[in-house]
Computed example of a mutant assay.
Amino acid sequence: MTKTVDPKFETVMIIDDNSVDLYITSRMISKNNFGKHLLLFTSGEEALKYLLEHQHNTSLLPQVIFVDIYMPLMSGFEFLDAFDKLDDTLKNHIKTYVISSTIDNADIIRSSRNENVSAFHVKPITKEFLDQII
């Protein structure tokens, strides 16, 4: 008999303006049974709007957010600044991870200094990276 394993997280949000990266990240999450439901956004504004609309219903909120740094209109860092202004209950429910193709040390340091960022990872995400997330 085959045993079905529940996904690690109920809901995972991915914010990335690059459709190829969005697809690759979502496939890695699905393939590795990391998230049951995926919320895919191509802009930080759309993602922030979703969080604000559902902030009082934790069953609709993600437990994990993967956000890219370099996006038009609202960068990942601007998203994180706006995220920081959200209610503490919401912020405590969600772990955020910066995923980026940058190798710029300034970006990596800036990410690591943000109290809302659990970790920085260079794209693409890997099974090993997902396995480290608790």
Rank of each mutant, 00 (worst) to 15 (best):
V64W: 04
K31A: 07
I65W: 01
I108S: 09
K49I: 10
S43L: 04
S112V: 07
D16E: 05
F83G: 01
D84A: 14
E46F: 06
L86V: 06
S59M: 10
I103P: 02
N33Q: 14
L130M: 03
L90W: 02
I99Y: 03
T25E: 08
D107F: 09
I24D: 02
S112I: 10
H54E: 12
I15W: 03
K91W: 09
I69R: 03
K31G: 07
K31Y: 08
Q55Y: 07
K85F: 03
L52Y: 15
L51P: 00
H93S: 10
F83C: 03
I133T: 08
L48T: 05
T25Q: 10
D17S: 12
F66T: 03
H93D: 13
N33L: 06
L60D: 14
D16T: 03
D16Y: 02
I103S: 08
K95T: 12
F9T: 01
E46W: 09
M13N: 02
K8F: 01
L51I: 06
L52N: 15
H93M: 05
F9I: 00
S19P: 10
F77C: 00
M1C: 14
I134S: 15
N114V: 09
F77H: 08
D6F: 13
V117M: 05
M28L: 15
E46G: 11
E46V: 02
K91S: 10
T2Y: 13
L86D: 07
K8W: 01
L80S: 00
A119Y: 08
S100C: 02
A47P: 08
I29L: 14
L40H: 10
I94D: 01
S59K: 11
K36D: 11
F34E: 01
D84E: 15
S30L: 12
D16P: 05
L39T: 07
G76T: 05
L80Q: 03
A106W: 07
D87S: 05
I125C: 01
E115R: 15
V64C: 05
N105E: 11
L86M: 12
